[in-house]
Design a protein around this nucleic acid. Structure first.
Lengths: 199, 199
DNA sequence: CCTATCTTGGAACGACTATTCCAAGATAGG
DNA sequence: CCTATCTTGGAATAGTCGTTCCAAGATAGG
């Protein structure tokens, strides 16, 4: 009997992700969301329920659509250290050039801003961190079986270090850091994990 | 002839730094500044000139008072790798416990938020980055003369890597990361730079 | 003490914020 | 076609934003 939605919530969420990602969720108003999505305040509030929940939904969608596929590709890539190097090369390229150049990473940006926000937002941050670190660890363990890793390397600590390095790449790229400088930093860390002479 | 200021602008700036640092500059209103400093809007605008300029002034003061002394101590510390390790141990401790626990770093936080802000803010970000990387480089060169570094290590790239690692520590600490996890990540990077068996 | 000059408190400003509300429109089962 | 039920557009809400303004207060040279 009832009426049905005149729009696709997932498409709307993608537009909101782009908005929050580029300009920041805190400084983006509902009026901006209305203008970008083309739908009305009523539909927005009826579907998502408010700005904080909209932000959490957008953050969750970013994790699933932008981050997760890349993390899974890294975890499934059996090449070892070259897989990690390729991950960072594509990361730096995406952060410094192309459509999303200088946007940083929505999750990384949220780290600095989400102070008293919803607990759901904090949970997405943690999910993101765990997923990336797990993917890094999987790639490092593949590297270990191939004999690419230095003897005595703590794989868990190394995975954390690389995850931290990725956050910093996201952060500095938004402030205008050069791709070459970021890549050199990443490579120095990776070289330190490799067996002498490897890579 | 004229009247003189009834307050100390530097003390006020310190209070503003604390406010912006803990809660974020974007979400902190002038009303909050008025409440925290105890002075009126007139004095605030007459002295600093507006919120954007107040933010730039607070950011600059943070760099000079909080960051610079630590960077200079690192650059002057001749111990090499132990000096860098000590830097990170004090950093993690300051970020995860004590008065400023979970505040992160004002400069790091600003990286994620300052998008279309004053160009002066961007310049402070760059000054901060250059100062930290130079200090890291000085400490690494001290390590080199002491034979602590792996053969073939690019000192410039390593300094950039450690600087990025520091940013990530600041970022993740604000989101609640455990001190032990952060330290383990840092140590993995440092161990990768050292001669085998060192540290 | 007087007065020129600055500072201060606090009211007022328009523009924005997120959110709510309701009448009008759209839908689909009966 | 009818009607119950949802959605939609858009006006209206109360509150906060950064900023401005001016009368009243404070200062120190003359």
């Amino acid at each position: 009997m009832p009426d049905v939605k005149h729009f696709d919530p997932e498409v709307t969420l993608d537009q909101v992700v782009a908005l929050f990602w580029q300009r920041g969720a805190e400084v983006t108003g509902i009026a901006d969301v209305v203008a970008a999505t083309g739908l009305s305040r009523s539909s927005l509030y009826a579907t998502f329920g408010g700005k904080a929940q909209l932000q959490a939904a957008a953050l969750g969608r970013y994790l699933e659509r932008q981050s997760r596929p890349v993390f899974e590709a890294l975890a499934a890539d059996g090449r070892g250290l070259p897989a990690i190097a390729a991950f960072f090369e594509r990361l730096v390229a995406a952060r410094c050039s192309g459509v999303h150049a200088r946007w940083g990473c929505l999750v990384t940006n949220t780290h600095a801003t989400a102070n008293g926000g919803l607990s759901e937002i904090r949970e997405v941050l943690e999910r993101h961190h765990d997923a990336l670190r797990a993917a890094m660890r999987a790639a490092l363990e593949a590297a270990r079986t191939k004999g690419q890793l230095r003897a005595g390397l703590d794989v868990g600590a190394a995975a954390e270090a690389l995850t931290l390095q990725a956050y910093a790449v996201n952060l500095r790229s938004r402030a205008g850091a050069e791709a070459g400088v970021l890549l050199a930093g990443v490579r120095a860390v990776l070289d330190g994990f490799a067996t002498t002479g490897e890579r």
